[in-house]
Design a protein around this nucleic acid. Structure first.
Length: 397
DNA sequence: TCTGGGGTCCTAGGACCC
DNA sequence: TCTGGGGTCCTAGGACCC
């Protein structure tokens, strides 16, 4: 039997959180985000949206469109507390809850069918109960796959309740522009339009005649897209708690910068943040990636990574790796707009103690840790040397 | 004034081992 | 002496999402 999957999406969540603790904000244009050179709108109230504001927009543009808007800097700790309460509320109705982000989740309500024949009333009660108890508005999409539920929750906002079925795709999702397809973004959508695929329905039709071209464009993603667009695809609710695969911190600088001293001091604070967060989450990682955004090549991102021989969360190791990557790859090349450090290939150090002891990790002084690291950094240069040496030896033999 | 910061996953090429 | 194919790991870049 088909499962009943819902996608529940909180409407203008950060704004609503602010209105809950300060009701005088209700009904006003509100922008959440930062001002300044590189400030952007994180999210905004429906009153601000009516004036043309939207998330991701540079703040200076938003304030032109909505000069009377109230600007609020995000309070993410507070939003996280509200988010936890939201998930607790949802878990009163079903234990099958998959958190998709701070303000949305997928849930399995298949068991509800046995308890009620009236699903509309059930979801209506859930929705208005959340509003009454917590003051949070949500939109709900109900379907038999996660993708259709997600697309459904986007159809009516705020406080929407939309049922998407394989039998009503023609009237629900197929008329939507291809840009609204979750998983197809601003690079792929124009390519599809070039093929004459302008709506989700066009894409469904194209899968019946143009597999080859679509595989070329979408690669491994194509079989999934084909399932989704015909009303199939995953209905699996993943209840495992969030377990990060990387921990990163980046910062857009106050001004484009090529001073090593300034970059170094920024790297120091980024490394400290990454190290602290890794430690607080009981994680250590063996790959350290430096990200920079240039100013000359059209604001492109560049990354350089190094993989150590042991996982670490040590501030000095992260800092000196990032600094070394910067010095060997970018120093003096171009002014930098943004720098970031990411720790990945994460493990739980508690499970790695034996392995770390093999390296006598604790016996290394800080300076030796750095030496180990630099030795690893030089591997790229060493490898061809070793190869030449081996070839020479072979010749002798 | 000119476009954040947190992530995930995929691709493609090279090194290396068997 | 030359040639190969499969598998794994690493790196860099890019698309996408909230």
């Amino acid at each position: 039997m088909a499962r009943i999957i819902a996608h529940i999406d909180l409407n203008a969540f950060f704004v609503t959180c602010e209105q809950i603790r300060d009701p005088s904000l209700i009904g006003k244009p509100i922008l959440i985000g930062h001002e300044g050179r590189s400030g952007i709108v994180s999210t905004c109230s429906y009153e601000a949206r009516a004036l043309g504001c939207h998330s991701g927009q540079p703040m200076f543009q938003a304030t032109k469109l909505a000069p009377n808007a109230i600007i609020i800097h995000g309070d993410y700790q507070y939003y996280q507390v509200m988010s936890n309460s939201f998930f607790s509320y949802i878990r009163r109705f079903t234990k099958y809850v998959e958190a998709a982000s701070i303000d949305e989740c997928y849930c399995d309500f298949t068991h509800i069918v046995k308890q009620t024949k009236d699903l509309v009333t059930f979801f209506h009660d859930l929705q208005f109960g959340l509003l009454k108890e917590m003051g949070l508005k949500c939109s709900i999409g109900v379907s038999t796959s996660k993708w259709m539920a997600k697309m459904g929750s986007d159809l009516k906002k705020p406080m929407g309740l939309t049922f998407v079925k394989r039998s009503n795709l023609d009237s629900t999702l197929y008329p939507l522009p291809i840009e609204s397809f979750w998983g197809i973004g601003k690079k792929t959508a124009p390519e599809l339009r070039k093929m004459g695929i302008n709506t989700i329905g066009d894409l469904a039709k194209a899968t019946e005649r143009d597999d080859a071209a679509l595989i070329r464009m979408l690669g491994k993603f194509y079989p999934t897209v084909k399932e989704w667009v015909h009303g199939y695809g995953s209905d699996h609710i993943d209840m495992t708690p969030f377990d990060p695969k990387s921990i990163g911190n980046s910062e857009t600088l106050m001004h484009d910068c090529d001073s090593f001293i300034e970059i170094e001091s920024t790297l120091k604070s980024l490394a400290k943040e990454v190290s602290d967060r890794a430690k607080s989450q009981h994680k250590a990682g063996s790959t350290i990636t430096l990200t920079v955004k240039d100013t000359v090549e059209g604001f492109h991102l560049h990354t350089k990574a190094v993989t150590l021989e042991y996982p670490t969360s040590d501030f000095e190791v992260i800092f000196s790796s990032a600094k070394e990557l910067y010095r060997t790859s970018y120093e003096g090349k171009f002014p930098i707009r943004l720098v970031g450090i990411t720790l990945s290939k994460l493990v739980n150090p508690a499970r790695q103690i034996v392995q770390m002891n093999l390296w006598n990790y604790e016996e290394y002084e800080e300076s030796d840790k750095t030496k180990l690291l630099i030795a690893r950094l030089n591997r790229k240069m060493r490898t061809p040397m070793l190869k030449r040496a081996r070839d020479a030896k072979k010749k002798e033999e």
